[in-house]
Amino acid sequence: MNDEVAVARPELEEAARRAESRRGFLIALPAWFYLTLFFVIPLGIVAVYSFATRSSTGRTILGDWNLNAYRRLWDSLVVEIAARTLVLALVTTLICLLLAYPLAYYMATRRPMVRNILLILVMIPFWSNFLVRTYAWKVLLGSDGPVSQLSQALGGEPIRLLFTNTAVLIGLVYGFLPFMVLPLYAALERMDWGLVEAARDLYAGGWTAFRKVTWPLSLPGVMAGSILVFIPTLGAYVTPAILGGAKTTLAGDYIVSQFLAARNQPFGSALSMGMMLIMLAATIVYFRWFRPSGRDL
């Protein structure tokens, strides 16, 4: 029996730890490799393209690097589109919050049986095909669609909502509302309702108890839901493409048109980079200040 070999020493412990670490790395490797190839490199290419030049025929010349594409980001048209997109995203988020909070509160305060049924009722639209759900509004809002027909049947004017900002707003709220309800519900359901009772016991009225206890405790859910609605709304493409019109161009459409119509890849790349930076900023703000307690991400 050779004790020299088998007795623990710091370097052997370290070697074992390193072998374990290597094992983890190897398991992580395939996904890492895949994402490097199909995500990191593509991201790099977009970054590179944003400094390239567009030839008169619409080809991209890799060389003659410049900041022209970024300069165009300050064009009044681009600023207008960005502002419209931002306002629309904020309004959508706010409306979703106003609709979803009472709903989530209502759900969380039901009996478990009712709660589960309501949860399923929210999950169904959440999982349903987004394109189809948006299309349903096109059917509803069309000039000879049910909404307009109903208005006329009641003796009113035909309603022309399709291809307006309002239609896009309705579509976005409809599309992303479940993304707001679910995190809010999760936060409220997890909450210790004993705390609300404690507040009531300490002479807080119903409204005060809500303001001082329920609302602050549900803030992580509010933030998570807001980020889940705000970010995809900023980049929305399908909804405006279906429900919006020529005068309602949003950032998403605009970027797509740079590639599929205008064939200005450097400018489209610069737009993408700009949008990505806004998202990253929003996400970082979220994780810095409203990081959901508990798990380390």
């Binding site: 995500f39 977009v46 393209y49 900023l234 980049g235 970027i255 797509v256 993408s272």
Partner: peptide, 13 residues
């Protein structure tokens, strides 16, 4: 986190 449109652009290029 990244918007779908951006990812689409990335992959196309």
């Amino acid at each position: 986190i990244i918007p779908e449109v951006t990812m689409a652009v990335m992959l196309l290029l």
